[in-house]
Write a protein that binds this DNA or RNA. Structure first.
Lengths: 245, 245
DNA sequence: CCCAATTTGTTCGTATGTATA
DNA sequence: TTATACATACGAACAAATTGG
């Protein structure tokens, strides 16, 4: 029975092969975020494996936050719309009862050419066309961070300014809704810097105030880099959170 | 067969019960970091479960980085001596060929009373006795970060300055070697600040230079908080790394 | 160098429990 | 209530890696 599955990849465990086929189905948007994938029995039939092998493949996808299982309901494709909500309140007393939701203000939308660093992180050629987006994120009436975003134009054909400014949705959801691109993993590096005059103005602080500089690359299935983002965060009232080592 | 294991906990899955017993064995230092735990067959006999159930318990401990399996060799208790090596080179060109290892310089060792914030994070009473340690970490000849560390005295009875300064080992290994306390998880919050005069002097930079301020709580088995550490990092040549979301 | 014992890794399958619609 | 779906628990058989003789 194994021979049937060895044609595509030599000597890879069966469950890894099944996992790859499932990621392929996800990449092809056969199964979309929020939707249920077929039941275990059906998937066993489709891939020609036992229930145990299938579950091992699903187990890994669950561990990677790509799928979510719910007893009695089914197995679902994870919705990664929570975006960069990795910063937490630092001073709770600032927020007197009523909740403040994050808002986005679009500062700039245009095209540019990828510089060396950007190209390397996005896995494209230096000089390739990218979209360049700058936004300010606020909580309540207080601007918290400036985000400088670069997207490979090839992955987001025909993206327009109207598309971004028409809806108050964080970017990751946009990718999902409009381009069937799902962010499933990010990698970040953090440094401390001083606010430039331009950033100070946008964030309503003094030039020279300390800012967190966060370099982030966001990845889709198969470790495909999708977005390169540099954020400048005012951590006076908030802090960036991290867990597990 | 299940009834035998239901005495301690009502309606918990068997494999969770096995996992708890294994964590208990680890907490009691029956199995120590770097050592192999008994083979699957023996553990099945000890806990009275099937191989599948035992493996599910081990799977979770492996996922939590508490155990490591190696085919043909055995299953080992993870050695968490890598400590806070979560910062990576930012400018590689700085390091011309030969490797620079991190060094520690002990600035201060003494006793203090836990303030409110510290007590909350260490899970002890405010005013309880703590050890207060300050170190500077350098790479090559360049000081990179100042670390301000608080440890509950109750967990580290009889700790002395000589113990810390005699060996050039990072603290986490010390805990392991001298007190059988293993750090298996950390939680961090990050902010940007400006260097104080004192920190500037220790780090050989100008006062007012931007510094990363990292609040970290380190946990042992069963989410026992062990250490509260505030680090001030010069990120001019290095950056703090993060992954997965 | 090869062999044999040990240990984990993979794959299969069955039976039963529990949550959901 | 019934059917469906995932969760738990069991265990057999074989594969692959490691170690020591």
């Amino acid at each position: 029975m194994r021979e049937l599955h060895q044609s595509t990849s030599l000597s890879l465990p069966l469950y890894k092969e099944v996992k790859h086929q499932m990621v392929a189905a996800l990449s092809a948007s056969e199964w979309k975020p929020g939707e249920a994938i077929p039941a275990e029995k059906q998937l066993c039939a489709r891939f020609g494996v036992s229930i145990g092998t299938l579950r091992k493949a699903i187990d890994e996808l669950v561990a990677e936050n790509i799928l979510v299982r719910q007893q009695g309901r089914g197995t679902f494709v994870t919705v990664h719309n929570r975006g960069p909500r990795l910063f937490r309140f630092f001073n709770y007393e600032r927020h007197d009862g009523h909740k403040d939701y994050a808002k986005f203000t679009l500062i700039r939308f245009g095209k540019a050419k990828a510089d060396k660093a950007c190209a390397a992180r996005l896995g494209i050629a230096a000089g390739a066309k990218v979209f360049h987006i700058v936004t300010v994120r606020s909580v309540g009436s207080e601007p918290i961070m400036v985000e400088d975003i670069k997207l490979s134009e090839a992955l987001f054909p025909g993206m327009t300014k109207a598309q971004l400014s028409s809806r108050p949705i964080p970017l990751y959801s946009q990718y999902q809704n409009d381009y069937d691109i799902n962010i499933v993993r990010i990698e970040e590096g953090v440094r401390a810097t001083l606010a430039t005059a331009a950033h100070a103005k946008l964030l309503n602080i003094e030039p020279g105030a300390p800012l967190l500089q966060v370099h982030r690359v966001a990845y889709s299935y198969n470790d495909q880099p999708v977005e390169y983002r540099v954020s400048y965060v005012n951590t006076e009232h908030y802090q960036y959170a991290r867990s597990n080592a």
